[in-house]
Design a protein around this nucleic acid. Structure first.
Length: 103
DNA sequence: GTGCTGACACAGG
DNA sequence: ACCTGTGCCAGCA
């Protein structure tokens, strides 16, 4: 599998995640059976803008700071289960919102 | 080839 | 719950 193919595959999978649900970088890599979380992240960093990038989060349900603000608005709009800490941090409720990969 | 970088993951403390 | 260190793998200088 070439780098280009991998890139497309990643973007495809992200497009499959239904509204209100999320998946993780590691899950995508595992689902594709190729590469690792960091490769997926690499793709998202470059071309994530083309897909619903907010449906891809870290394994613990958190997001990098520079994306959090935008993403929170999306979650509110599509009803994704989030958890708000008093410390101001927030994360996805992975128990309820993690998409298993079924279409 | 060699070294560094990341929208990560996981184990420790 | 939080922070830190280590492992990871592909891409690029």
């Amino acid at each position: 599998m070439t780098g280009d193919e991998f890139r497309e595959a990643v973007l495809d999978v992200v497009g499959l995640v239904p509204p209100g649900w999320v998946t993780t970088y590691g899950d995508i890599a595992e689902y594709l059976g190729h590469g690792g979380p960091r490769q997926v992240a690499q793709v998202m960093a470059r071309e994530g803008a083309a897909v619903p990038w907010w449906r891809v989060v870290r394994a613990d349900g958190s997001l990098p700071v520079h994306l959090a603000e935008r993403a929170i608005a999306e979650y509110a709009a599509e009803g994704t289960p989030t958890i708000r800490q008093e410390s101001g941090r927030f994360r996805i409720d992975m128990r309820r919102g993690r998409w298993s990969g079924e279409v």
